[in-house]
């Protein structure tokens, strides 16, 4: 096979791309996930999305703490309670060993899913309340300048 020098660079770049990328086989290629694995994945996805929301809890908490008013206290308390519920869930969560009976694993993940759904509702409610409060009571820096 003859390789013209002008073709070397594209070839090298293709080889480079192949060499620098790491194999990432989709799950489908490794066999379909079992019912237990699928239930675990659903649970973990919910956990990860809720954890991403935790940043918002703390953003609202910081904002509300700046109000220095008793009226904001219940909202801060609500945000902290939601955060505590999430951390409590995390600390009690013990994923069953993969050698456990599949039915037992599925039952555990579904039970945890229900608990986490409750935490999720708590997050939503407290975040919505905090948002409503801050919208109805904008902090000094949030008030748009009066038009002349």
């Amino acid at each position: 096979m003859n390789i013209a020098p002008k073709n070397v660079l594209p070839l090298a770049l293709v080889a480079l791309a192949a060499a620098c990328s790491s194999p990432n086989q989709p799950i489908a290629e490794q066999g379909a996930p079992s019912e237990a694995s699928a239930a675990e994945m659903v649970l973990m996805n919910r956990h990860d999305s809720l954890m991403a929301e935790t940043s918002k809890l703390y953003e609202y908490k910081a904002k509300l703490s700046g109000y220095h008013t008793e009226a904001a206290a219940p909202y801060i308390h609500g945000l902290l309670a939601a955060d505590a519920a999430m951390m409590d869930w995390m600390h009690q969560y013990k994923a069953p060993d993969t050698t456990a009976a599949p039915a037992a694993r599925v039952a555990y993940f579904r039970q945890q899913q229900e608990i986490l759904a409750g935490v999720s509702r708590q997050y939503r409610a407290t975040l919505d309340s905090a948002q409503r409060f801050t919208t109805e009571h904008p902090a000094a820096g949030d008030v748009p300048p009066a038009s002349k």
């Binding site: 990860d48 954890m51 991403a52 929301e53 935790t54 940043s55 918002k56 953003e59």
Partner: peptide
């Protein structure tokens, strides 16, 4: 790292 308007939340756990 990002201008404020582009900064999404959740950096702590994304």
């Amino acid at each position: 790292a990002l201008p404020d308007k582009q900064a999404p939340g959740g950096f702590a756990h994304n």
